[in-house]
Design a protein around this nucleic acid. Structure first.
Lengths: 194, 194
DNA sequence: TGTACATCAGTGAACGCGCGTTCACTGATGTAC
DNA sequence: TGTACATCAGTGAACGCGCGTTCACTGATGTAC
């Protein structure tokens, strides 16, 4: 019988380290999480961590860049798909709340630690979330869909109108954003930008 | 001659500990700053810290609540002074950028560590910044100066439209906000809310 | 198919270090008589 | 004014602890002949 062989699959220790790390980092912060915490959550010894990553710092960087890339790629996809500015904005806001709902720990971790890691992200709009948004708004200004102004400032305000409600939700001040909430945010953003 | 007596003033070690702590916490985070760092910046030994504060945590809490109260009192003052909603909003945004310019370290520290300390701030609108803003927007909705909606969500968006540009400035993505920038933000906020 | 060796992901114990905190002490200042 | 004592803010050395990391090792799996 092959029972032994059939039992073997699904250790995937590396993936489980990443999951545990992101969850703990989001909850307690990088410095507030020890390698013992991570190893304990995974169910291995600390030594095992170093079979998969060269250092604690490398775990955080790896995990950040992976999540960050997911967000950047999602934004690029929306940008490519939606030609009308209104629809693009609506899709972007919907997308951001979707990934926040799907992976709250990952979203929180990226939100809270972005400034420690953003130095490793190039300013290229295909990989940098903020640059992508600046570009979208700049194009919309060129097309006359929103009024002219500093695209960096417009991007900051637009981003703030999404992230601050997201933060309010993560800290329990707002319930999980529903369709109506997203619509209210998009409406306000369009009014602010036009 | 009284030279020795005239030399004596201005140790104010407690105040200097607070200043050094807030500057270091803002730059490196709470966990990234050691009591040795703080004592070294002040020019005393670590033991001296414990003549003025019972623990490192108490330094952070004290310093946070002091700065936070300054902001809350400033907002309350604006609210009491300005009766017209437009003027109130303009004064609030101006005030926030003023204290950020005056005390960047304090502002950064409060911005970054608020969620560790907000549990010590009551939900009372006289002491809680977010509650005060919710109240202002709720009143403006009652008075018909802005359109009805969830005041918590409106507060989140309004706050995001100020804080995200502030964050962009702190991290070098935007220059120091000038009069025109503040005016652009206020204009966008009014459009978003009306 | 069986045997010899290489590779790999794990263990568990230990490491040196920097952390927050403590403590006995000192010297300057304030107070009482 | 002088003396005796209390208080206070500092020193400097030490503490125990938890941290990130290392290392010799083991046993399971893959590969070559």
């Amino acid at each position: 019988v092959k029972r032994a062989a059939a039992r073997k699959p699904a250790p995937d220790t590396r993936g489980r380290i990443e999951e545990a790390a992101i969850r703990l980092f989001a909850a307690r912060g990088y410095n507030g999480t020890s390698t013992r915490d991570i190893a304990g959550a995974v169910g291995v010894t600390e030594g095992a961590l170093y079979r998969h990553f060269p250092s604690k710092d490398a775990i955080a960087r790896e995990v950040f860049l992976k999540r960050y890339r997911t967000i950047a790629e999602g934004i690029a996809a929306v940008r490519a798909r939606e030609t009308a500015f209104d629809a693009c904005l609506r899709s972007l806001v919907t997308f951001l709340f979707e990934i926040m709902a799907e992976d709250p720990a990952g979203f929180t971790f990226v939100l809270l630690t972005q400034h420690s890691h953003l130095q490793y992200v190039p300013d290229d709009p295909d990989t940098n979330v903020v640059e992508a948004i600046v570009r979208i708004l700049d194009d919309a200004m060129d097309a006359g869909e929103i009024r002219r102004g500093d695209p960096q400032l417009a991007a900051a305000m637009a981003l703030g109108m999404v992230l601050q409600p997201a933060i309010f939700h993560l800290y329990g001040r707002l319930p999980r954003p529903d369709e109506a909430t997203i619509e209210a945010i998009v409406t306000s953003m369009l009014r602010a930008l036009r």
